[in-house]
């Protein structure tokens, strides 16, 4: 009999293999991200033309922020997990998980971890291509604690990212089509997750609100730790809120799964 860890290790391996099949897609996506980086470079370069600092940070620091944010997205971001879950519910593939001694959340999470290892490794390729052009602009702080604490922050971020995607996948129990919800949340996430601009540029009261929401802890939090945008005290405070959201989203997903299954109709054999 499989122990729990061996069971999910196997699904992790399957996830690794199936994601390696799509290595070209991830690599192409990575190269297209460089275009986004070009937009960032041109827009912020023009904004910095008349000033040395924006929000207390130099052009190099801001560019480093966006580059780290990009890498972070490939390592901890949810890509299309919501659609995959939605498709499994809609097509009835989910029925096999109801009948087997496997936890669907853990199964999907192990595949998500495998997918991020593949996409994270693949973003390094376009990054290496771009590095000769970018390295003179890159500047990271030297405090050792940042490099230690960014790891647990990234792990919790990945968990939150996956949990939110899982949550949207669960909506399929109630709505046939979830694409609208997903793209709606993408807009909120790109804004409050710090993908559009560093969140510390927001007016203070908006930043305080953003800090309380889970989106802040999706990619901004680890990026801010690594790029020197928050201090040690704010990092500890951030960990407390991040942990709260990780637990809260796990609870919410458990409820959604149970409630959703009550509505689910398994047809056919």
């Amino acid at each position: 009999m499989f122990s729990a860890s061996a069971k999910y290790y196997q699904s992790f391996l399957i996830g690794l293999q199936s994601n390696l099949v799509y290595r070209l897609n991830f690599a192409v996506r990575g190269f297209f991200s460089l275009f986004h980086l070009a937009v960032v470079f041109i827009l912020w370069g023009a904004a910095y033309a008349g000033t040395l600092h924006i929000g207390g940070f130099s052009f190099e620091q801001t560019l480093t922020y966006f580059l780290v944010m990009l890498v972070m997205q490939f390592f901890v971001g949810a890509f299309n997990e919501d659609y995959q879950i939605s498709e499994e519910i809609r097509s009835g593939l989910i029925n096999q998980f109801i009948l087997k001694p496997i936890n669907y959340f853990s199964y999907r999470f192990s595949i998500f971890v495998a997918a991020r290892l593949v996409s994270g490794a693949l973003i390094l390729i376009p990054l290496c291509v771009a590095l000769p052009f970018l390295h003179s602009y890159l500047t990271l702080p030297t405090d050792p604690w940042r490099y230690g604490l960014v790891i647990p922050a990234m792990l919790l971020s990945a968990f939150i990212q996956f949990s939110i995607a899982y949550c949207f996948g669960m909506l399929t129990f109630w709505f046939l089509e979830i694409q609208g919800f997903v793209i709606l949340s993408m807009a909120i996430e790109s804004l409050l997750g710090g993908q559009m601009f560093p969140l510390d540029l927001l007016p203070a009261w908006m930043l305080e609100i953003a800090k309380l929401l889970p989106f802040y802890y999706q990619t901004y939090f680890p990026t801010a730790i690594l790029t020197g945008r928050i201090d040690l005290a704010a990092t500890y405070q951030g960990f407390a809120i991040q942990l709260f959201w990780a637990v809260a989203l796990l609870g919410l997903n458990t409820v959604l799964w149970r409630r959703g299954l009550r509505r689910h109709t398994a047809v056919g054999g």
Partner: peptide, 18 residues
Amino acid sequence: AVNLLLIAVIYEHTDSIA
């Protein structure tokens, strides 16, 4: 709104873009 907010936020910190 997200695209417009980006512009608004940048202009909170600078007077001109190019």
